[in-house]
């Protein structure tokens, strides 16, 4: 078990480094002069400055060094916890993240919780209902859920619940009420995927001979589904939850833009537009770390859900 954990942690570090490096070089390859973009962002024209002033600015931001030199400088700083200065905002990246991250974590956390609740709930209900028309209708809901675009769903929710009924604020990031609509918007596609997979899982498990054994004991349908069906049907779900965390990050970019929330997602969108390499790099590193950590947790949870899986070497 210890060896497994050490291996997985080393793997996680490797993934983080890979993501960081890949992102850096992709950003470097993007066309455009970083300094010109920075200057235009702060309202100045590069043409209005003398060559000497430009060189000074370049040296100040470390842009005169080679690609690899810049890369290693950034990497070394990142290892020491210094993610550098934002090129366009002129503030330390760590401070920016500290300000924006809690917003996004609250949004993503709520969305993941909601999507699991809705997805598992829907699939459980579908498996339990026996009246065919309702069962068929419930089984078709997930495909509707992930075929509706996130932005459209967001606008629809704003239209109905913010402008129409006035229950929740349409925009902003103050208070719990402002979290509701964005979290629902973000949760719907994931919930649909969970529901679809779990519905399939139940369909498969319902045919298993151990279900017949359970019925033959004299258990009721509800008991069989709760004690023998759910856990077996939910096995594929765990892997999926790990993978969906990635989607939640990219979903956050959209949702935070629609609902004008000051989160990491919007920061990412702005940073990419301004080619703010340190900020984008930091965001990639943070989301990669989240992805790796969640998937590690998923893998460690597996043996508890399915005793047939073990991370320790088996001796027969």
């Amino acid at each position: 078990m210890k060896g497994y954990l050490a291996g997985r942690l080393a793997q996680a570090v490797l993934v983080l480094w890979g993501a960081y490096t890949l992102t850096y070089f992709i950003l470097y390859l993007l066309p455009g002069d970083t300094l010109a973009i920075m200057l235009s962002a702060s309202g100045m024209e590069a043409d209005g400055l003398s060559a000497q002033e430009l060189a000074q600015a370049r040296a100040f931001y470390g842009l005169d060094k080679g690609v690899f030199e810049q890369y290693f400088a950034l990497l070394w700083g990142a290892l020491q916890g210094d993610l550098g200065q934002s090129l366009s905002l002129g503030r330390p990246v760590t401070a920016l993240l500290a300000e924006r991250l809690p917003q996004t974590l609250a949004l993503a956390g709520t969305a993941i919780g909601l999507s699991l609740l809705a997805g598992v709930g829907l699939a459980y209900l579908t498996a339990y209902v026996q009246w065919r028309p309702l069962k068929a209708a419930l089984a078709r809901l997930p495909s509707l859920g992930f075929s509706v675009p996130v932005f459209w769903m967001g606008l629809l929710l704003i239209q109905v619940f913010a402008f129409g009924l006035g229950w929740f604020p349409a925009t902003g990031s103050q208070g719990t009420a402002s979290l509701v609509l964005p979290a629902i918007t973000l949760a719907i596609p994931s919930a649909a995927v969970y529901a679809q997979v779990l519905q399939r899982g139940f369909q498969g498990v319902w045919q298993e001979p151990y279900i017949a054994t359970a019925f033959a004991k004299g258990l009721s349908r509800a008991q069989v589904q709760a004690r023998h069906g759910l856990r077996n049907a939910a096995l594929p779900l765990l892997t999926l939850v790990g993978l969906q965390v990635g989607n939640t990050v990219s979903g956050a970019v959209l949702v935070e833009t629609i609902f004008s929330r000051n989160g990491v997602g919007r920061l990412a969108q702005e940073a990419v537009l301004r080619q703010d390499i340190p900020v984008v790099l930091a965001i990639v590193a943070v989301s990669a770390a989240a992805f790796v950590v969640v998937n590690l947790i998923v893998d460690l949870l597996y043996p508890y859900l399915d005793p047939r899986i073990t991370h320790t070497a088996k001796v027969s």
């Binding site: 001979p209 151990y210 017949a212 054994t213 359970a214 033959a216 004690r227 023998h228 399915d306 005793p307």
Partner: peptide, 12 residues
């Protein structure tokens, strides 16, 4: 039941 290999719940 017929097939003991698959007739017990594997997770309990």
């Amino acid at each position: 039941p017929q097939d003991p290999m698959v007739s017990l719940n594997p997770t309990l």
